[in-house]
Nucleic acid binder design. Structure first.
Lengths: 186, 186
DNA sequence: TTCGTTTTATAACACTGTTACGATACGATG
DNA sequence: CATCGTATCGTAACAGTGTTATAAAACGAA
């Protein structure tokens, strides 16, 4: 579908505010009505982009190889999280921020998006089975903690709210490692 | 200024999309031009709200008492962070998310907002001096890590992206404690 | 071909932020 | 007190947005 591709381009190249239906329709030589018959409106279009964003995201996270050191695997997943987000930052803000007021993903696409989180929980489970992490805490909780650190740091970075002059990449890695250490058996 | 108060109310009660200049002007029996002569436009109004939001935020964080256990103080700051954000969640999304496309705070108000972060760094410094945290890492980095965890978890919570049926408050606290433990001397 | 459904284009509606223009109000200066 | 200058305000218009009613066109099946 040309409309969806162009919408992704507009979003990536010029940001959410450039994604107007008239602009989008003109770019692919059609009319705004097409968006309504094919998707159902702008929220539905955003929903499709949301879905596409999580698809790419999940693809990249799933490509992180599985070693016999699950904690190190988590670190690599986290680093991949950041790289993916920065690579598709306009998609990222659609997925994790409120660029369009009142936009909420369909529960259907939301559930599909939640699948992105599964590999993290599985890796945490391996770390627990491994004895690296204490079994006191549910793997979902530990996974959520690591997920939140990634999300928090990356969104602060994308929005430019981080202290200036800070070399973010190494700080990100050390932070993730420190947080993982917090769950470690000792 | 009645305009700013009403803007805050609209933002808090009905969300960012209800904050239109005509609506706002009508609610205080004036005209949209007032916003332009008094503030300079909608971005400038948002800037004022941004400032107000960080002022409240910083006030609450500064109210956390200082004990002789700086690590515990950090935990309390984090819990206060979450409570404050949830209490003024509409302000929070203006401060930390992109509810209005292309809105960026003035560097002036941005610097003022950065002051909110100072108590965190100071408390981390006390924890390092105390011997609770290793001196290997700059206090800004540790502070940023804790700050990011708060931001990440809270924004996921506000946007409803968290796993349903999850009791968030205790998870939040355990997560923050685990992350603080990650920096601990051992 | 003919019928029915889907997709499309045009145009309008209601809404948004913004601004030019003129009127009003206010405060300090003469 | 009068006058001037500035700041504020109201009306109206402009350009842009998402959305929708209506009608035309395209397409596939009978």
């Amino acid at each position: 579908m040309k409309l969806l591709n162009r919408a992704g381009e507009l979003l990536s190249n010029e940001g959410p505010s450039a994604l107007s239906l008239r602009r989008l329709a003109a770019d692919v030589n059609t009319s705004t009505t097409a968006v309504y018959s094919l998707f159902g409106g702008k929220p539905a279009l955003l929903d499709a982009l949301y879905d596409e964003g999580f698809r790419r995201f999940g693809e990249r996270l799933a490509m992180v190889p599985e070693t016999d050191d699950p904690v190190e695997d988590l670190i690599q997943i986290a680093l991949t999280y950041r790289e993916s987000a920065l690579q598709d930052r306009q998609f990222y803000v659609v997925m994790f921020s409120k660029v369009v007021p009142d936009f909420m993903p369909t529960t259907e696409t939301y559930i599909a998006a939640s699948g992105t989180f599964v590999p993290v929980v599985k890796t945490v489970q391996r770390a627990i089975d491994n004895g690296s992490f204490l079994p006191d805490e549910a793997p979902e909780v530990i996974g959520l903690a690591l997920w939140s650190i990634c999300h928090g740091l990356v969104s602060l970075e994308i929005y430019g709210i981080l202290p200036p002059g800070l070399e973010i990449a190494p700080v990100f890695e050390r932070t993730v490692r420190a947080s993982a250490d917090g769950w470690r058996a000792r």
